[in-house]
Computed example of a mutant assay.
Amino acid sequence: MQTASTNICERMGRSQELSDSKRGPVIGCHLCNKSIHDISWQLNIPRPTVSGIITKWKQLGTTATQPPSEQGQRMLKHTVRRSQQLSAESIAKDPQI
């Protein structure tokens, strides 16, 4: 028997990504002029996810997973804050400092 907390944990799949085979039908339905609500209900995908897939497709022309763009910038800022006495050239040559 599942408890309420187990059930909630199973529904909270934030770290899981939608496969390409599930993103394609979202775009197909969108091109057939279906609403986000209808796509969400038909494919059993949350509305924010459907909206995000469509927005990404409109902006980038792809639904493929993209690497996080700000991760490198955050690492560099952290490195600079941690070792402010180093020169920019030495940080650029060896970001693992």
Results as ranks from 00 to 15, higher is better:
Ile53Ser: 14
Thr65Lys: 15
Cys29Glu: 07
Ser90Val: 13
Ser87Glu: 02
Gly52Lys: 14
Asp94Ile: 09
Leu43Glu: 04
Ser83Asn: 13
Gly28Thr: 06
Leu86Asn: 05
Leu60Phe: 04
Ser15Cys: 06
Ile45Gly: 04
Gly13Trp: 05
Ala88Trp: 02
Gln71Tyr: 05
Pro95His: 13
Lys34Ala: 06
Ser83Ile: 01
Gln84Pro: 11
Ser19Phe: 11
Gly24Phe: 14
Asp20Pro: 00
Gln66Asp: 03
Thr6Tyr: 15
Gln42Tyr: 14
Ile36Cys: 13
Pro68Ile: 13
Gln2His: 11
Gln85Asp: 12
Asp94Pro: 04
Gly61Thr: 00
Gln16Val: 14
Ala92His: 07
Lys58Ala: 03
Gln66Trp: 03
Leu18Gly: 13
Thr49Ala: 07
Gln96Tyr: 03
Gln84Ala: 10
Pro48Asp: 00
Pro67Trp: 01
Arg74Asp: 09
Lys58Tyr: 03
Leu60Ile: 07
Ala64Leu: 13
Ser5Gln: 09
Glu17Ile: 03
Arg23Gln: 06
Ile36Asp: 02
Gln71Val: 05
Arg11Glu: 10
Trp57Phe: 14
Ala92Gln: 04
Arg11Ser: 08
Ser51Leu: 01
His78Leu: 07
Cys32Glu: 13
Trp57Val: 11
Gly52Asn: 14
Ala92Asn: 10
Ile54Pro: 13
Arg74Tyr: 11
Trp57Leu: 03
Asp20Thr: 12
Lys77Met: 01
Gly52Leu: 02
Ile8Cys: 00
His37Lys: 15
Asp94Met: 11
Lys58Asp: 08
Gly61Val: 04
Val80Pro: 00
Leu31Glu: 03
Gln85Asn: 08
His78Val: 07
Asn44Ala: 12
Ile27Leu: 02
Glu89Ser: 06
Pro48Ala: 02
Val80Gly: 05
Gln2Ile: 07
Ala88His: 12
Gly28Arg: 04
Gly61Glu: 12
His37Met: 08
Gln84Thr: 15
Ala92Ile: 15
Gln59Trp: 11
Arg82Ile: 02
Met1Thr: 15
Ser15Thr: 10
Asp20His: 00
Leu31Asp: 01
Gln16His: 10
Thr49Asp: 07
Gly24Cys: 07
Pro48Phe: 00
Ile45Asn: 00
Trp57Tyr: 15
Ser19Asn: 10
Val50Thr: 01
Ser69Asn: 05
Gly24Arg: 15
Lys77Leu: 00
Pro68Leu: 00
Gly28Ser: 02
Ile39Cys: 09
Ser51Phe: 04
Val26Arg: 00
Ser21Cys: 03
Thr65Cys: 12
Thr49Cys: 11
Pro68Gly: 14
Ser40Gly: 03
Ala88Gln: 06
Trp57Cys: 06
Gln71Phe: 09
Val26Lys: 01
Glu89Tyr: 04
Arg47Val: 12
Asn7His: 09
Thr49Met: 05
Gln66Ala: 10
Gln16Leu: 12
Gln96Ala: 06
Cys32Ser: 09
Ser5Val: 13
Leu76Val: 12
Ile27Met: 01
Thr55Asn: 08
Ser90Cys: 00
Glu17Gln: 13
Gly24Ile: 06
His30Tyr: 09
Asn7Tyr: 10
Asp20Leu: 09
Pro68Ser: 07
